[in-house]
Simulated assay, not measured.
Amino acid sequence: MTRRKFFETANKIFGFFLILLGVFTAEDKKKKSAGEKIIIPENLNEGFNFIGNVIVVKQSKTLVAFEARCTHLGCLLNRNTGNKIVCNCHGSEYNINGEAIKGPAVKSLNKLVIHTDKKSKNLYVYV
Rank of each mutant, 00 (worst) to 15 (best):
A10C: 05
L20H: 06
T2D: 06
F16P: 01
E8L: 10
S60Q: 12
G52E: 06
I51Y: 00
M1Q: 06
C89L: 12
H90P: 13
G35C: 07
A65H: 09
H72F: 01
V106E: 03
A100L: 12
T81G: 08
Y126H: 08
N49C: 03
N11D: 05
I38Q: 00
N49E: 05
L76S: 05
V23F: 10
I13K: 04
E8I: 14
F17M: 15
N95K: 08
N122K: 14
N88L: 13
T116M: 04
L44Q: 03
L123T: 03
N88Y: 14
K119M: 09
A105P: 05
F7C: 04
K29W: 07
N95Y: 14
F24W: 13
I19L: 13
I51R: 01
R69F: 11
K84N: 07
F24P: 08
T2Q: 05
F48L: 03
S108H: 08
A34M: 14
A26H: 15
A26P: 12
E99T: 15
L109D: 04
V127A: 04
N83A: 10
I51M: 04
F14V: 15
G74M: 11
A65D: 07
A105Q: 05
T9M: 11
E42R: 04
L18E: 04
N83W: 12
R79G: 10
F7Q: 06
N49Y: 03
S92A: 13
G98W: 06
S60M: 09
V23Y: 02
F17T: 13
L20W: 09
G47C: 01
L73T: 06
N53L: 01
G15T: 02
L77A: 05
A100I: 06
L76D: 05
T116K: 03
I38S: 00
A105F: 00
G103N: 14
N78E: 05
D28P: 02
G103C: 11
I38T: 01
L109S: 00
V86F: 09
